[in-house]
Amino acid sequence: MNTFAGIDFPTWWFLVIGAVFTGYAILDGFDLGAGALHLFFNKETSRRTALNAIGPVWDGNEVWLVIGGGALFAGFPEVYASLLSAFYIPFMIFLVALIFRAVSIEFRSKEPMLWWRKMWDISYCLSSGLLAFLLGFILGNVAIGIPLDKDHIYRGDFADFINPYSIMVGITSLALFMMHGAIYLVMKTEDRLYAKLTIIVRRTTIFFVISFVITSFYTLLYIPHLVDQIHDSPGMFILPVIMVLAIANITRQISKRKYLLAFLSSAVVISVALIIVSLELYPTIIYSPQTPANSLTVYNSASSNKTLGIMLTVAAIGVPLVAAYTTFVFWTFKGKVKLDETSY
């Protein structure tokens, strides 16, 4: 085990990266979900209100993705290299979708023409939905593993990634973010849009529950290495229980129209889902199914202990600052959205 002075730096850095990506999924998840729902709003004022609900926070939420990518590169450079080379095409599509989403948000209100705004509305909705799907699609492929040679170089082609499990995880991710985004929007809106969103929240919740159940059964039946840890460690059974209870609480709070509690439960579902995947893989980060000996783990792919120790110190200072800034922004722009001349 790669430790120094009794501290398992690789594992600690693995936890830091996991926490950062979890933060990204929770924060950017709701505005991706809100974007994927955008075309369900027919009126101009409704679309502007939905855009302004995420307007103050969407670009700040993406900071967590940048931090996570940088942390992965610094802490586990071999994982970063293998992952990005293997998923070159999906990541390029992801980056293009990120660009179009940002451009759509910023350009939509620059001209008053109906065709102009409709064009960017479609771009915004499709790019947001594609991003939500791709996050799950990539996660699904990482979970089942990708073929690596002894030099940890990816040996395969893009067709390998088109498999039932990654598509199911992608759809489940899209459904989860749509539900997460709908709950956020209903907290930020009022009047007729609020009434419409109460219906959309229920429908997206049903969509997520169905997707989640199908994907869970497929995992149990056909992806054995993702359930071995739970079989071997009965204490881990508490995590699926927490997830099921959180999903049940979402439906319960929605029926009571207590949307803040539903939103917090949705965040718990995202967190626990990523924790389960991480624990099922640990200490592996990238599993090589054909040749498990070629897999990348937290120990054979980590930077030096000195590097990890220095970066953990920096992370202990920097991550709380970013979290504090994020909290401040949400607190500043709390409450219902009101449109004015400065709105999108």
Rank of each mutant, 00 (worst) to 15 (best):
L131E: 02
I122P: 05
S166W: 04
W58D: 10
T49K: 08
A262M: 03
Q253C: 06
A132H: 09
A316W: 12
D149T: 08
I7H: 11
F87K: 03
A74V: 12
D121S: 14
L139D: 01
A324P: 04
S288M: 02
G170C: 02
N141C: 02
F41K: 09
T342L: 09
P240V: 10
V20R: 05
M168S: 08
S216M: 14
N61Q: 13
M178H: 08
E111R: 15
R192G: 07
L185W: 00
R192V: 03
L296D: 00
L126F: 13
G309D: 03
D31G: 06
R203S: 06
S166R: 02
D228F: 06
S127G: 11
Y154K: 00
Y124K: 00
D228R: 08
A324Q: 10
Y88P: 07
M236Y: 13
P147T: 05
S343R: 00
I247H: 11
F9Y: 15
T172L: 03
V272A: 03
G70K: 15
T251Y: 08
I317T: 06
L176S: 11
M113L: 07
M1F: 08
D340S: 12
F91Q: 04
Y325P: 08
P164N: 03
I17Y: 01
G68T: 10
S128Y: 05
F207S: 01
W331C: 07
G156F: 14
I250A: 08
I199T: 13
W116K: 05
I199S: 04
I238G: 05
I183Q: 01
L239V: 12
R252V: 04
I223H: 08
L135K: 01
V63N: 12
S343K: 00
A175N: 00
F76S: 13
T204D: 05
S271G: 09
K110N: 09
I285L: 09
A5M: 14
L27K: 04
F330Y: 15
Y184R: 10
D31A: 10
L220S: 07
R108P: 05
I275N: 05
C125E: 11
E44Y: 10
V209A: 08
M187K: 01
V329R: 14
Y325F: 15
S104I: 03
G33P: 06
W120T: 09
G156W: 15
T297L: 14
S82M: 12
D157Q: 04
T11L: 09
F212C: 01
M168V: 09
V103C: 06
L15I: 12
Y124T: 07
M119L: 15
S123I: 14
L15W: 08
A50K: 05
L174G: 02
L131P: 01
P164H: 11
T332N: 01
F328M: 15
G35P: 09
G156N: 02
P147D: 09
V322P: 06
F207R: 00
A293C: 04
M1C: 12
V314D: 03
I54A: 07
G335Y: 14
G55P: 12
G181V: 05
S211M: 03
N305L: 13
A315S: 07
S343L: 01
P112E: 06
I310R: 08
A36L: 07
